[in-house]
Amino acid sequence: MNGHIHRFTSLFRWLVGPLLSAWVASRYGAGAGLAVLAIFVAGPALVMLPSFLALRFFPPAPGLPAAAWRDLLAAWWREVIAVTRVFNWDQPWRAQRFPDHLPADTRAPRGVMLLHGYSCNRGLWNAWMQRLRADGIPYIAVTQEPAFGSIDLYAPTIDEAMRRLQALTGTPPLIVAHSMGGLSARAWWRSVGHAPDRIHRILTLGTPHRGTLLARLGSTVNARQMRDDSPWLLQLAEEEPHNLGGHFDCLYGHCDQIVFPSETALLPGARELHLPARGHLQLVFEPQAYDRAIQLVHAAPVDPGIRPQPSAPRAGSDPARYSQTMP
Rank of each mutant, 00 (worst) to 15 (best):
P268F: 14
G33T: 13
L114C: 01
D90S: 05
T207W: 08
S10V: 05
G316Q: 13
G170M: 15
H298V: 01
M226F: 06
F98I: 09
L214H: 10
A22D: 05
G170Y: 11
G149Y: 15
A104Y: 07
S150I: 08
L55W: 10
V16T: 08
F8P: 00
T204I: 02
I5D: 01
D228G: 06
P261S: 13
V297A: 06
L153W: 10
A61C: 04
S262N: 09
R210W: 06
E240R: 13
A127H: 10
V16W: 08
A293P: 11
F57C: 13
T9R: 14
Q235F: 15
P319N: 03
V80P: 06
P18Q: 08
W188I: 02
H242Q: 09
G218L: 00
A104C: 00
L34I: 08
M180S: 13
H101K: 09
A127M: 01
D152Y: 14
H280N: 01
T264H: 13
T106P: 02
A187P: 08
L53N: 04
Q91A: 00
M113L: 04
S317D: 10
R70Q: 12
W128R: 05
N126H: 08
L266H: 09
A312V: 10
R186V: 06
P65A: 10
G253T: 14
W77V: 00
D152Q: 13
S323A: 13
V36G: 07
P313E: 09
G193A: 02
L205Q: 12
G17C: 02
T106W: 11
L102H: 09
F40W: 11
I258Q: 10
F52S: 02
A293G: 12
Q91S: 07
A195L: 03
D135F: 05
M1D: 07
